[in-house]
Design a protein around this nucleic acid. Structure first.
Length: 469
RNA sequence: GUCCCCUUCGUCUAGCCCGGUCAGGACACCGCCCUUUCACGGCGGCGACACCGGUUCAAAUCCGGUAGGGGACGCCA
């Protein structure tokens, strides 16, 4: 184990979204690459908004993506006594003070400052008060320095410096006695000995305050790496308006976890011209130094392409397991009869971009067609169709062919014998067997369906065509 | 408003640190080929250094400014 310790610290106020997932992935990657430790911490200091459902959803998302953690999950809510202790320490040292200003007063001041074009920061009313009113609720504020500047060397963005006069005395403890986020992160990261804080760059502005807190508390300041935002197609912050943002929603839409992680890792990070990364390659090649500084737009198209790639190259047996729930949703239980699912999948891997597409395309293997593509049929005369079906049935019944290639050969023979062109035979048969004009190769279908079922479907189709004069 | 950050094809990006490439790759799109439908695949095309100055023989690359975009400014995280 190296000394590297990183953490992913989501707040349980919703599901795991793709932005959070990417942050988690980068943290995980750094830990795995360096042999360090990846910690999962739930930031639930906002008791009002935190829910158990969200916690479950986040864990589920992490597990689906294969982002396993070494320590945790820890909950900030179980650390409240610890935070109180540090608040007291700051109070004792004179580095924090009680503030009796009310929310209403603060709001009014903020509004006023905004109107006058000033920075809406706390005016310091209670910073130097010597008399403490009794029996009045108070918050605890950090006594921030007014002079100088606070800076840190971000691993992604470089040196970032803030004039201290821009920073006000932030609240570290609410009037109900609970600690606030900016205080808790510092304590937790320090206690957990986090060496590198990788998080979204919407936290850049919080960082100088946190650095001041580390220093006031006498803790070493960790390294920071602020990852740029993920935007929607209109360059606005990614939200539900742009489509799904939940990791689990992508699973339900038929995406493979390796496709999502591959997509996410390339969003903001690159390794030369490489696009496809196995889990191992990602771990080996990941480097924070190669994370870009600018925000990036989420592209469903590229995700789809990657998903298609992983479906194409995936193990049919594993895909079968992943596909089964989608088939069951469609009323098919592949274990209850019909072709072996893995065999069916082999014929569909190049034709499906998602598990949903694959499930839809696989349906005909388990449910014989009840209707036939009319437009497709209409291209051929009734006489021709009957001739084709009869020829195929006869040929098939006496053949010993068993593989897709052998069946394909059979059709070539039929074409030669009857002086038909391949499309004149292939299309009618495809419709007979699948009901549709868009399906795998004839040989593949027959090999998957089996001779018996194929003959059955051919007879059905012949009867159907014969019956409509 | 103030502060912080960002800016290469429509999108993700390589190149930038250590100036000299026809500014490369991928997705999408278009065309051609393959073909038993649909796909897969192969080949080709379209397409970018935000802008203005400066330094230099030479700038996507170094410096300054402008514009645009994003973020933060909470008793949210």
């Amino acid at each position: 184990m190296s000394a590297i310790r990183v953490r992913f610290a989501p707040s349980p106020t919703g599901y795991l979204h793709v932005g959070g997932a990417r942050t988690a992935l980068f943290n995980w990657l750094l830990a795995r690459k360096t042999g360090g430790t990846f910690i999962l911490r739930i930031e639930d200091t906002d008791v009002e908004r935190s829910t158990q459902e969200s916690v479950d959803a986040i864990l589920q998302g992490m597990e689906w993506l294969g982002l396993d953690w070494d320590e945790g999950p820890f909950f900030q809510s179980s650390n409240f006594p610890l935070y109180k202790q540090y608040v007291q320490q700051l109070l004792d040292d004179g580095k924090a003070y009680r503030c009796y200003c009310t929310v209403e007063e603060l709001d009014a001041k903020r509004e006023q400052a905004m109107k006058e074009g000033r920075k809406p920061k706390y005016d310091g009313t209670c910073r130097d008060r010597d008399t403490a009113p009794v029996d009045r609720p108070f918050v605890v504020r950090f006594r921030a320095p007014h002079e100088g500047a606070t800076s840190f060397d971000d691993q992604i963005k470089g040196v970032i410096s803030f004039p201290n006069e821009e920073l006000d005395d932030l609240i570290i403890q609410r009037s109900d006695g609970t600690p606030t986020y900016n205080f808790c992160v510092v304590i937790d990261d320090a206690i957990m000995k986090i060496t590198t804080v990788i998080r979204g760059d919407d936290h850049v502005n919080n960082t100088p305050r946190q650095v001041q807190l580390y220093e006031a508390l006498g803790f070493p300041v960790p390294q920071f790496a602020h990852v740029p935002m993920i935007l929607g197609s209109d360059k606005a912050r990614l939200s539900k308006r742009h489509g799904a943002t939940s990791v689990i929603a992508y699973r339900d839409m038929g995406f493979l976890p390796e496709a999502l992680t591959n997509y996410l890792v390339r969003l903001g990070w690159s390794h030369g011209d490489d696009e496809i990364f196995s889990r191992e390659e990602m771990v080996a090649k990941f480097d924070i130094a190669n994370v870009g500084r600018s925000a990036s737009v989420f592209s469903p198209d590229k995700l789809l392409w990657l998903n298609a790639h992983y479906i194409k190259t995936g193990d049919p047996q594993r895909l079968a397991e992943l596909l089964t729930p989608f088939l069951k949703e469609r009323g098919v239980d592949p274990a209850a009869g019909g072709p072996a699912l893995a065999s069916a999948i082999t014929t569909l891997q190049e034709r499906a971009r998602t598990m949903i597409e694959m499930a839809d395309a696989a349906l005909f293997y388990y449910i014989a067609p009840v209707t036939y593509d009319e437009a497709g049929m209409a291209k051929f005369g009734q006489e021709h169709l009957l001739a084709v079906y009869s020829a195929v049935i006869t040929k098939l019944a006496t053949s010993t062919a068993a593989t897709a290639a052998e069946y394909d050969l059979l059709f070539k023979e039929i074409c030669t014998e009857q002086s038909w062109k391949m499309p004149q035979v292939g299309q009618p048969v495809r419709i007979a067997l699948s009901g549709s004009t868009q399906a795998p190769g004839i040989g593949e279908i027959i090999a998957t369906l089996g001779r018996e079922e194929t003959l059955q479907r051919m007879e059905d189709a012949r009867r159907f065509v014969a019956g409509r004069s």
